[in-house]
Design a protein around this nucleic acid. Sequence first.
DNA 1: AGATATAGTTATAATAGGTAACTATTTTTT
DNA 2: AAAAAATAGTTACCTATTATAACTATATCT
Lengths: 167, 167
Amino acid sequence: MTTSKKTSSPEQTPLEEAYPTTVEGLVLEERLGYALRRAQLKVFKHFDEAMREHDIRPAQFSSLVVIEGYPGVTQSNLAQTLSIDPPRVVSLINSLEERGLALRVRCKRDRRSHGIFLTKTGEALVERLKGLAEQSDLEATQSLSEIERRQLLTLLRKVYASEESDD
Amino acid sequence: MTTSKKTSSPEQTPLEEAYPTTVEGLVLEERLGYALRRAQLKVFKHFDEAMREHDIRPAQFSSLVVIEGYPGVTQSNLAQTLSIDPPRVVSLINSLEERGLALRVRCKRDRRSHGIFLTKTGEALVERLKGLAEQSDLEATQSLSEIERRQLLTLLRKVYASEESDD
DNA sequence: AGATATAGTTATAATAGGTAACTATTTTTT
DNA sequence: AAAAAATAGTTACCTATTATAACTATATCT
């Protein structure tokens, strides 16, 4: 406030309400990270609504789908697969186990690790959720044609799948 | 743990290390939200690295760019533009002001609001940052051709720009 | 047997994000 | 012109996410 370093003409006060509610034309519109964040915000909002009824968070959904696809997957596998940290997996699986959707089974071969399995309830739920998630995606991307939607998915995969060294 | 409800064959312990570190072939790969999150994770990681030297967070960068583009923008304008909440803007501008990058000027016309301006330092920094951000985007999306990158950006904009009612 | 590595866990901290309530102003209504 | 309502910004608070470090129990290596 006491800084005297000024640029434009600070004493000349902000004009009307003439300021934009979009960043149209701004360099920001060219930034991939910004576009990704905004798009993700929108898609996740739809997802949240779709899952509210079942009180399922994005990470829980992802976990359920992976466990369904690979019954007996270990927690460290899950961490790698979803690229989240082991401590995060613990609370994730805790929440699923508490709700009777999944369960840990101590591995006989290596008694340090747990295989994660879906319960019958979990299996039934994940089937339902997959349908809801697909519907939610469609709603969130109504502005895209079917071809564009596929294109977008392909491009996104291409971005995150390239494991240079990170991730 | 005491749940007796089982699905696959939990007693049969998890197989080797035969589990995947990708979700290849899984329904998850078809989910837009998942793809967006993973891509964003990657792009943001590069961005963080690029900005580390200047200790600038994504939201700070976005704010700086918007202020540069619309000198005298008010905090509520900024909140709308970036679709973040007013309280978030407060701490954002605080951090920029403390570092001498931006400053608030009480508006004469409407003394409730502040116009936000960049200082000379802020202007110089944002110029530098824009270059770094562009470079970071390119690095994060090495796997894309220039055309694909443009395509991706266009598609993402199309997703988040369609204001049906949300956002 | 002893050293080292791994799977999972706990505790903890940093941060993002959002809600509610408050102050100072301005605008609207009567 | 006074009272009521709306607005800009702020503060306090609360929750969820994410990362880090340290601990345990098992397993592997030499």
